[in-house]
Design a protein around this nucleic acid. Structure first.
Lengths: 243, 243
DNA sequence: GAGTGGTCTAGACCACCAC
DNA sequence: TGGTGGTCTAGACCACTCA
């Protein structure tokens, strides 16, 4: 079996990769579940195991799948112990990242202002969920997050639901709403604390804070969450690795 | 040929990868040059082409090598037009990243203070080169960089040498001193501008600035550059992609 | 022991580039 | 036209997990 070598050539393994992504998007396999074995998939798609392997390799490199030797290949999830807060790059100056305390300040349904709607691919005035919360390290507030979500994807999201949940929000989003955050893009700036955020983070007005604006995407490059975090970087820092 | 399956098993392709890294480190192939073809390497090492391929795949994924179909595999370099400022994540709010202006403020040999020596794997008091420069976007200062380098690796580095050079410093470091920066780790914070940096960046004292502390490594996880950048993020932002 | 992913091989053919 | 990396296959065997 050979890929059609016409314009915009795409090798077989990429086509297989596309089929796998489509099935993931369709929810055929839930987060944390195993997908069929390579041999099984190879049979289904009518290709060799090596071709399936290369497709899965790429999906694993992109953190959509997780391989475990001897056990199988699993749909990646944000809800696991090992990989808490996959997207949070905050590290304490001393020691390892221990558990962060959480404090939910607000959760309400709103109409999306234009600047948010634009980034989430919605129209201004569309339904939107707005969440505000604080993350604490050893009792001290370190992060103030404002989170905006499309209203149609998160219909039953309430303060009570969020409070009842343990672990990262992204885990809840997967299990309760079937929304998988698979990649994100952050814009980072230094800003001065205004009265509001200064009070919540217990710092003087005008203190320098790290502003982290994150747009998260699900399958098919569809943006599904906008988040603006204000980080107090006096005892923590944002860690980034470059290659 | 089979890898020894004793304690700490290492597959053949990883051993090949190690041999390739050793040759890169020894300078057998210079930055930008082509390495031998896969078939040639396979013959040399006495393994199949597929095994060499997997080793090269990993090195390409880590940006140590660059593959070009039909041409060969090349040693990655910071000195190319396409890939200017590989480690700089600064983006303008509007439009694309255009050429940055540079202004060299200072370059002198010093004795390393303890906090720098520790990070560069040196002893306090060892010889060190200190560089200060400004990056400008459309005539306005945006980045103030302080750069510290081990004195023994950068013996002939002078103000004049830096001024004569075009393109990123990392290109000069490769061609003139044989030092390749292959990865780096950044610690990012928000800080208030002091009198000195405020004047140089033409902002009010106390303005929030992004502090980007970068430790760069060469082969063998050896740290070879410490850099602290202060970024004015009023018209630019630090971009980061998460997976 | 059975099933999974991981490694290694040998060979065929394709796409891209330079001469 | 020849050389390079890129794709695909089929098969053998290894390492890991679990029942």
């Amino acid at each position: 079996m050979r890929a059609d070598s016409g314009p915009s050539f795409s090798p077989l393994y990429r086509q297989i990769k596309g089929l796998l992504i489509a099935r993931l998007q369709a929810g055929e396999w839930k987060a944390g579940e195993a997908i069929p074995s390579e041999i099984e998939l190879a049979g289904r798609f009518g290709v060799s195991q090596g071709t399936v392997r290369k497709a899965v390799d790429e999906l694993a490199a992109e953190n959509l799948l997780v391989r475990r030797q001897g056990k199988g290949t699993f749909v990646a999830t944000h809800a696991e112990q090992q990989q808490q807060y996959r997207f949070l790059r905050l590290m304490p100056d001393e020691g390892q990242q221990s558990g962060l305390g959480r404090q939910l300040l607000d959760c309400r349904r709103q109409r999306a202002p234009a600047w948010i709607a634009r980034q989430l691919g919605m129209r201004a005035g569309d339904a939107m969920v707005e969440v505000r919360r604080i993350l604490q390290s050893e009792g001290r507030p370190v992060v103030l997050d404002d989170i905006w979500l499309p209203g149609d994807l998160f219909k039953g999201l309430t303060t009570e639901r969020l409070n009842r949940h343990r672990g990262p929000f992204y885990g809840l989003f997967e299990t309760e709403f079937g929304v998988h955050m698979i990649r994100a893009q952050e814009k980072i700036r230094a800003v001065a604390a205004d009265a509001d955020s200064a009070a919540l983070l217990q710092v003087p007005v005008g203190s320098p804070l790290l502003s982290v604006e994150r747009l998260s995407y699900t399958y098919g490059d569809k943006p599904v969450e906008l988040r603006r975090g204000l980080y107090n970087t006096s005892t923590h820092f944002y860690r980034n690795d470059l290659n």
